[in-house]
Amino acid sequence: MLEIRDLSLALPARTDHSDADIIAVSNLSLRLQRGRVMGLVGESGCGKTLTAQAILRLGEHQGIRRTGGDILLDQQSIFAMDDVTLRKMRGGRVSMIFQEPMTALNPVFSIGSQMLEVIHLHLNLDAEAARQHAIRLLQDVGLDDAGHLLQQYPDSLSGGMRQRVLIAMAMSANADFIIADEPTTALDVSVQKRIIALLRNLQRQRGLGMLLVTHDFGLVAEMCDDVAVMYAGEIVETGSVEDVFDHPAHPYTRALMGCRPEINPPGTPLPVIEGNVPAPGLWAAGCRFAPRCKHADQACAGKVALHQWSRHQHQARCVHVEAAESC
């Protein structure tokens, strides 16, 4: 199990003024289990990427600091890992797939040399066995003529092919968990569909635990077992996809799902959420969504905890959760 426990992250200290921490992710808890896909959704700037990157301790070199909480991989804190263990953990036990397949591959090295580097880091194989392994991985992700592909450079591949190569690399060491941050956003619809099908098949075959960061509810409906909705650095609702789609509890979840054109009659004005996601440092003291919420009142001024909503594991962070159900 991969467990984020009460995690808080602060942005890099600004040189211009005060030394108070600017918190961008606060007291966030999430649990990934092998064999299950968890979707992490929310508007741009909510902190989804910061959270995803924290799992591999990737934000640290940009000055993102952990100010509280922990991340446990099978009970072991990733913050207690030394450099060697950490490097083996990345890609070896937890892999990441990024939004931009263009920038995640190095243009000056062939596909083969980049894949073999990853394979040699994690697996103890001789040169020929490693090559065979790379070929098998490429075939697994639907790339034919893998032998030839190994000699090619990223430039000569389409976006969809690059993303397949990155998925193959993410699978190269039998990691148990995959963190996918908007893995298809940069791709064409038809290519998106194939990449999603590929990810889902691999996830099922290998029993992977997956965190799928996306702002696309269609993708959540398509792929996920569970979903966590994030707003202003915290989880505001979490539960199984069925529960959250059938009985969204938090006004933010409802509003976000309600904006989708596919659930509104053609040509009618779409419901909107007025205003913007507040930047870190500008969050309201009580419920952070209250300034944009149609149901907000005095009760929202105090601190709001996540609390269990009608069904098992379905939680929402809203004092009006009961009221919201009836309207």
């Binding site: 619809v189 569909k193 696309d216 509810f217 269609g218």
Partner: peptide, 9 residues
Amino acid sequence: ARPVAHPSE
């Protein structure tokens, strides 16, 4: 190839 609107689809 359109994404589904609901997990049941």
